[in-house]
């Protein structure tokens, strides 16, 4: 049995902060990078990441594999992901329940999938291919969505549970995505979280979102460009209290602030993880 150590809070690694991090070596648990930003042959990105990897645990988060593409995952991309994973030996590898490539064109967004039995078999097959190629389990993240499709056959939580069972993958629970999708589709985020298969969760994401109001209609957009909302913090606290603590990431990708602001949110997440620790057995 492994010792149950306190899961740490980490931060998304942005180029703007790398120099400071290497110099100041802040006390954060780990960093996460987007795999696609490290698929070049060389140069400063790899130089910095090698040094950060020597100091911190790393998580690799893919944003371009297009696991939900009906005409197959982005050609050749899995091999490039494997190169990144082999080189940096991350403690976690994750991707999204989404698609982004069709007919060889990369649509740079995490696009929604209809939750049907057919989609489930397709995604499970792709996840299996990824896990076989990488030789490890991956985590699949619940998306933020802005629309739903005709003819869907199951809720997202059922889809993710079945995917985890069928492919053996773990899940990445993005609580901000839950809040964004809940508001956009008019469901209760607590009900969603109550039916979420938490036993498969290997990592939690927290981020900020934008509220767009127009003609009396509101849409929440998963922007990662501002502080985490109070509702997301509350749900995070409830989730770790009820379902156990997980490594937790602060994501900030647009309008990236000074490192201190990111570190402040990492500390907040860490202290919530800390205060929830009486709830699960912990060995020294």
């Amino acid at each position: 049995m492994t010792v149950d150590r306190l899961p740490r809070a980490g931060a998304g690694l942005k180029p703007e902060h790398q120099r400071h991090i290497l110099e100041a070596r802040p006390d954060v648990g780990w960093f996460e990078v987007h795999a696609e930003n490290y698929m070049g042959a060389g140069g400063p990105p790899h130089h910095s990441l090698e040094r950060i990897r020597a100091l911190y645990p790393l998580s690799v988060h893919g944003v371009g594999l297009s696991i939900g593409s009906a005409d197959g995952m982005a050609p050749g991309h899995l091999a490039r992901l494997k190169t990144v994973v082999d080189r940096y030996q991350p403690f976690t590898v994750s991707e999204h329940l989404a698609w982004s490539t069709h007919d060889g064109i990369f649509l740079n967004d995490l696009l929604p999938l209809p939750y049907t039995e057919a989609t489930l078999s397709l995604v499970a097959r792709h996840v299996d291919e990824v896990q076989t190629t990488l030789g490890r389990r991956i985590l699949i993240e619940n998306p933020s969505t802005y629309l739903r499709f005709d003819g869907e056959e199951m809720p997202e939580t059922d889809f993710l549970r079945a995917l985890a069972r069928r492919s053996g993958c773990g899940l990445l629970l993005d609580i901000n995505n839950v809040v964004v999708s809940a508001a956009n589709h008019g469901f209760d985020p607590r009900a969603y979280l109550a039916s979420f298969p938490h036993e498969h969760v290997g990592e939690i994401h927290l981020a900020g979102h934008a509220v767009l109001e127009k003609d009396g209609e509101t849409l929440l957009v998963d922007t990662h460009d501002r502080t985490i909302s109070l509702e997301v913090w509350r749900l995070f606290r409830e989730v770790i209290a009820r379902h156990g603590r997980r490594p937790t990431l602060i994501e900030w990708d647009v309008e990236v602030p000074a490192w201190q602001d990111v570190e402040g949110e990492v500390r907040q997440a860490q202290s919530l993880l800390q205060s929830a620790r009486g709830l699960d057995a912990r060995a020294a």
């Binding site: 802005y146 629309l147 209609e217 849409l219």
Partner: peptide
Amino acid sequence: HGIRRDTQPTRGRRFGVYRNNVKASL
């Protein structure tokens, strides 16, 4: 075709978020 129509905001606004994401990020 195929986008559910039974919810507000309009489908145009919902689909517009994806359009904006793709184009603005590129």
